[in-house]
Structure formats: structure tokens, C-alpha cells
Amino acid sequence: MTEAAPVFREPLPTVAQSAMPPPPAETLIYRTKLPVRLWHWTNAITIFIMLMSGMMIFNAHPHLYWGKFGANPDYQWLWIGHIGTRGFTRLFGVEFNTTGFLGFAGGVAMPFPPILTIPTTYSLADARLWHFFFAWVLVVPGLLFALWALVTKHLWRDIVPKAKELAPGHLLHDTKEHALLRFPTGEAARHYNVLQKLAYCVVLFVLLPGIVLTGLTMSPYMDAAWPWLLTLFGGRQTARSIHFILATGFAGFIFVHLAAVVAAGPFNEIRSIITGWYRLPQPKLKGARK
């Protein structure tokens, strides 16, 4: 994957005629292949619908439990509710006042507020329709993508970090650079950086399979067909809790992902996920500025 297309071969500025090497030409590379882009945009829509309809489904019973069973009389590790016009979130027995966001917001008593849910007014039946249609949109293209990524070795070449990238020194260095919002430039930007790879690995190998399998574990029909699901997750209510935690993980990933796009240069990043073409960022040369 090195279809480099040099563009803008303008005369280079002649600031430093001395020993300094000339800065490289700005280069557009074809970095993001079509299946990645298609799957990205399918997921971009799907994940929001899944999260929003999922929050409406949660609203039907805003309590979470551990174990094989769990209902109102049993111990709940999470409860989002309201007393009068005060919204609260009770986490492991500790109560937080979340009025205006969770439990009670904008004059509406709902665990997750209408602005976050599909549909906006209470309907478990409709939320289920959305959730279980887009579950297929998540799973079927996901399996096709997985097949493509395995066959073309995209997974090993581009996503799974190399051993040397995982060396503590390298990890530490990249983390520092990220924290300072300094992203890889030049040749190093041809590939995903190690933190990016790790984030994608978490999504591909933890969040996605986890959310699908915990979803299936909540199905009484699938528990009969594949009883190992219950063994794997330790019961239906634990699976439901993990499903919720992984969904929160997706929300966190989306937040960090979008923040990274903004920090790394939204135009270039969005162009690459739409057209595939990505401009290698120029290294900032010390002393190149006056």
C-alpha cells in the first residue's frame, strides 16, 4: 500500500541555505482503502442509532444487576431514576444528583433524556425495532469486513501493533507526544501510530465482539441454542451489565476518536476517510521559522 502521489511540486522556500536538509514535498498518499471507508461510514451511522435506541431500551428498566437473574427486589449496581423533579444516578450504592442530565432533565422524567434516545418519547417497542434492525447492519458488514481484513492481511499489516511498537520506550514516547498533541509526521504518518492501532484493536477485538455476544446472551432463544454464552459471561444479567459497559466504551471511543480528528487536522483526516487520500503532515523543522 504505497501508491504515493506527489503533488504541489512548487519551489521550496529557501529559508535556510545552510546545512539544513530541504523539507520534503507535501505528499498525498492513498492510505484508506475502500472497504475501510465503506465500513467506517456504515458504522458511523449504525453506532449512533444503536447507542440511542439502546438508551431508550435501558429507559424501560433503568437498573443493572450481576448474575443469572436480577429484578427490582435484587441488588442493583446501577440505577438511574428520579424523585419528583430531582434526577439521580446511584452507582454501587452511592447516589449522585444528576438533575438536568440523567433521571430528570428539561421537565421530563426519563433515565436518559429525550435528546439522547430513539425515539424521543418513551417507546420500548420502537426502540427495539431500531436496535434489532441495526444490529444486523452492525453484524453482517462487520463479518464481511473481518473476512476482507483477514484475507488481505489488512489486520496484521495496518492494525495489529508490531512488537517493536509495543516496547515500553516506544509506547511511552508516543503517549507523551499524543498528550502534547504532537502527531506523527512525514514517513511515520504513512501508518497508524501505535496508540491509534491499540485503540482500533480494542474496538475490533473487545468492544465489537463483546457487544454482539453480550447482546445475544440476552436472547432467551439464543441461550437455548448456544448455552455457552451464559457460561462465558456468567449469566444474563451480567451480560446485560457488560453490554451497557461496552456501549459506554463505544461512546468513549467515539469521543476520543472525534477529538483526535480535530486535533490532527480535520480536513485532512475527513478527506482520507471519504476519498482515501491523506496528506502526509510535514515535520516541523527546528529553526525553519525565524
Binding site: F58, R236, Q237
Partner: peptide
């Protein structure tokens, strides 16, 4: 057996 309400809770 386990009774699973559409709302999300279960009882055995």
C-alpha cells in the same frame, strides 16, 4: 427456568 421481561429484568 428464567423469566426475561422485555424491559430487561430476569427472575428464576
Amino acid at each position: 427456568t428464567r423469566h426475561d421481561c422485555v424491559e430487561g429484568w430476569s427472575a428464576i
